[in-house]
Amino acid sequence: MRDFIRYGAILTVICVISGVSLAFVYSKTSVIIEARQAKEAMKAMAVVLPSATDFEPIPAIELSAASGGAQGVVEAYLGKAAGSTVGAIVKVESAGYGGMITMLVGMDTQGVCQGMQVISQSETPGLGANVKEEPFYGQFAGKKGVLSLVKEGGQIDGISGATISSKGAVAGVNKALNIAKALLGM
């Protein structure tokens, strides 16, 4: 019994010292980490909607109303510049070949896609994973309307050998553009 208390006390002392030192390190680093994460999120958003300088998150209720029950809608932002709305950014998930492709899509008030970035994906390396490469995602900027792959008579060059990944990405962009239109009241 005495041993039991002694062991407990020793472990407690070690844990308390560890906890205090961790709290100190955390307080020093968390500010930097948060600032960096926010900056990174901003950077991705600035890429898909270059004209905006400020991004205002859209409340979940409003977003689900705009998406009309569509699946895989993560979050959305209104892009602002000098106080007026210049476009919208929607983060969506779309089924690819190896899993979900998460992407950020930006659209201006004219309904023109301003850019697309793949945030995360689990496609085949060397094939479908190329959706996150510039030759593929770069095609979306400046496109308007409902998009589809060239081999279906559309505007987007699919990745050869990775039709499902390409289709998934295009479907995601279409979904995001639709929601962005609803959000901007178009």
Partner: peptide, 8 residues
């Protein structure tokens, strides 16, 4: 190793 070369 070379999935895209193979698929081509």
């Amino acid at each position: 190793s070379w999935p895209s070369v193979l698929s081509a």
